[in-house]
Design a protein around this nucleic acid. Structure first.
Lengths: 163, 163
DNA sequence: AAGCTGACTTCTTAATTCATAAGTCAGCTA
DNA sequence: TAGCTGACTTATGAATTAAGAAGTCAGCTT
């Protein structure tokens, strides 16, 4: 574990998945819009109202998220109404679910008030609450502290800087 | 599933765990600092350099994260050096691990380049890669789409607005 | 053809966030 | 006790992000 970490300055973070992800959703409102999308919100006005942001901000975020492929703009038509567009999760967006669940779970544990969380996510089949857990590919649960960071195939090593 | 969601406007989000969490870490640099903390970074200058931000920004973020209780400022002393302070994860901060793992995992899947991810997290005991998965309290894995949002104990319902 | 409504866009202004550069400060070493 | 160095703080200015109000636009209904 120590080996890699002590050499931390030798890696380049140009290829960091976290940084890339955050370039897409690295601000409060994008994440809140994703929350709403998971809660089932689809319409422009509802996003703005429920997230609590102005329309210009909602339009910008929705556009970014659509361009990034997490949401898609799909036409829908209510009876007697003209065709309108809704924003719904794509597979790419749905796969973001673990992040939202992990965020909510952390907040429930460390930043909730006495009344408890306002919403819970349940398993469709059995009704039990859903949590984000860490598990290794061998099927073991991985408690905090029982993991280490290792070099991946895309790690770019850079020479020690001369400073 | 539909029942609650269609009534979405009837909930108040004042008690939203996600919104509260994002008030603490809802910006790109805070999340990147948390990433570094998990990678083992502890010193001020290293945070600034590795996250790629200026010192004022690093000082502000580190102070926020410390005030929020995710990091703590602990004294350390290298031989022949004076006492200095390092920032290290608290239990509250360590528990944030699932969010960072989920973020990295999403980025590895949807935003990585051909070379693959630069780093992987492995299980200390068996060396297998660690992933964030969703699981219900009955022990079932919960695939995308097999969950629904339900009212929690802290849900505040508000009257339908007159608009 | 006019009205209506949801879905935006535009404009202006305020607030926040950031980088860069230049200090400041503490305390161990020489 | 002067220097050195890591850990910050201060100052300034640029860039980004936001709200609020108002305007535009499309197309179904009347």
């Amino acid at each position: 574990m120590k080996d890699l970490l002590e050499d931390r300055d030798a890696w380049s973070m140009d290829n960091c998945s976290i940084a890339r992800t955050l370039e897409i959703v690295g601000n409060r409102t994008s994440l809140l819009i994703m929350r709403e999308a998971f809660f089932g919100t689809r319409r422009f006005d509802d996003f703005a109202k429920r997230v609590g942001i102005g329309e210009p901000a909602a339009a910008t975020r929705l556009k970014e998220l659509t361009a990034a492929g997490l949401l898609e703009r799909v036409p829908y038509q209510e009876p007697g109404q003209r065709t309108r567009y809704a924003y719904q999760l794509t597979d790419k967006g749905r796969d973001f679910r673990a992040v939202i669940v992990a965020l909510r779970q952390w907040g429930d544990t460390w930043a909730a008030d006495e009344q408890g969380p306002p919403v819970v996510v349940r398993h469709e089949n059995c009704g039990a609450e859903v949590h984000a857990v860490l598990r290794c590919d061998e099927g073991h649960d991985v408690p905090v502290g029982d993991s280490f960071v290792d070099a991946g195939p895309g790690l770019v090593r850079v020479g020690p800087d001369s400073s």
